[in-house]
Simulated scan of single mutants.
Amino acid sequence: MTPAARVQAAIELLDAAVAAAREGGAAADTLIARYFKERRYAGSKDRRAVRDLVYRAIRRSGERPASGRAAMLGLAEEDPELGALFDGSPHGPAPIAAGEEAAPAAAVPRWLESRFDPLVGPGEWPALLERAPLDLRVNLLKGDVDAARQALPEAEAAPLSPIGLRLPEGWRVEDSEAWRTGLVEVQDEGSQLLSLACAAAPGMTVVDLCAGAGGKTLALAAAMGNEGRVVAADVDRTRLGRTAPRLARAGVGIVETRLLDPLKELEALADLRGGADLVLVDAPCSGTGTWRRNPETRWRLTPDRLARLVKLQSHLLDIAVELLRPGGHLVYAVCSLLREEGRDQAEALCSRRSGLVAQSPPIPGGRPAGPGLILSPGHDGTDGFFVARWRSPC
């Protein structure tokens, strides 16, 4: 592909990403994979160059652009060499017309600016779009951190997590023996800290209420030494179905999965009501704390969707309280930096469930935010999270 053809390919992919964001379609990574599967003639350098252009444009555009061309024109305004490739050559983009509109640069969509937690001000917003590091959690069921460091000599200790490692960007951990044998699991350091905030211990009965594909379920089971009971529950059959092979590779044998019906969750969990030592609610959220991994999600979020998520989070917290035994612990987490999903949600639970005793999550890093802590890329170098912990009255 010529340099101009790469630009045109990026424009086509951005058009697809804009449409997918508007209509709830596939993620940008999936769109890129499909695009090049149909274009086998594109070499590895072409694929890397096009992907880089696509993500540069996505990271630059806080608001959903009018088109892929508008997004790329925004980049071209800041990069004259890129602008010169709009030359009308074969397979390249048409020349830039006078007055043609380019997408403006912004880290945060305008309608969200006032909704960030006050601790995460505009000075931290650029960090939300930086490239995320490759973090690993050491699976203590298969070995310790020293063993993982020996197996992966390129890795460094994670800055905050005592069970974390960090690899250089672009490292293919799935090709390593350490990953294949279950010694390490890919997991952002912030997610590792959330699991540590649970303080899970051997013999506990634990409910992971929004387990998804089981990333934190695995961490909880490892912290329990594979002794006790973990119920991994979710309403998404596809994501929950991905748990089994991960459990097998990690050597975990104490997890059972349960598929829940939305708004009927307690019916499927009736046998656990009042009996859980620990309930983790890693709730569905806006994902504002993970923009550095999925920057196009900024284009998908709307006020209506955010309102539905906040309502769902409140519903899940009330379910979690019902599952706790006297003296049990509830941990609430969202990969969001918005006040209404974090500290406001936690404060609202304290108001309507006044018997709960707020406790500081026992983790390094973060800043106090109401009853919980907030971690952010700009302050902690992790994905953005809010986490709070309570003890049920005895």
Rank of each mutant, 00 (worst) to 15 (best):
P3C: 03
V7Q: 11
V18W: 02
A19P: 02
R40Y: 02
R47I: 14
V50R: 01
V54N: 04
R56L: 09
S61C: 15
G62V: 06
S67K: 14
G74A: 12
L82M: 14
G83I: 13
S89V: 01
G92W: 09
P93A: 07
E101H: 05
A102D: 12
P104F: 03
S114D: 15
R115H: 09
R131A: 08
L141K: 00
L141C: 07
G143V: 05
V145D: 04
R149F: 02
Q150N: 12
L152K: 02
W171C: 03
V186C: 00
E189Y: 02
S191K: 01
Q192W: 02
L196A: 11
A211H: 07
A211R: 00
A219R: 07
A222W: 01
A223H: 11
G241S: 15
E256S: 12
G275C: 07
R308G: 01
V310M: 13
Q313Y: 00
I319F: 03
A320H: 06
E322T: 11
P326D: 03
V331K: 08
Y332A: 12
C335K: 05
Q345H: 10
L349K: 13
Q359S: 08
Q359Y: 03
G370V: 05
G378V: 00
H379S: 11
V387W: 02
R391E: 13
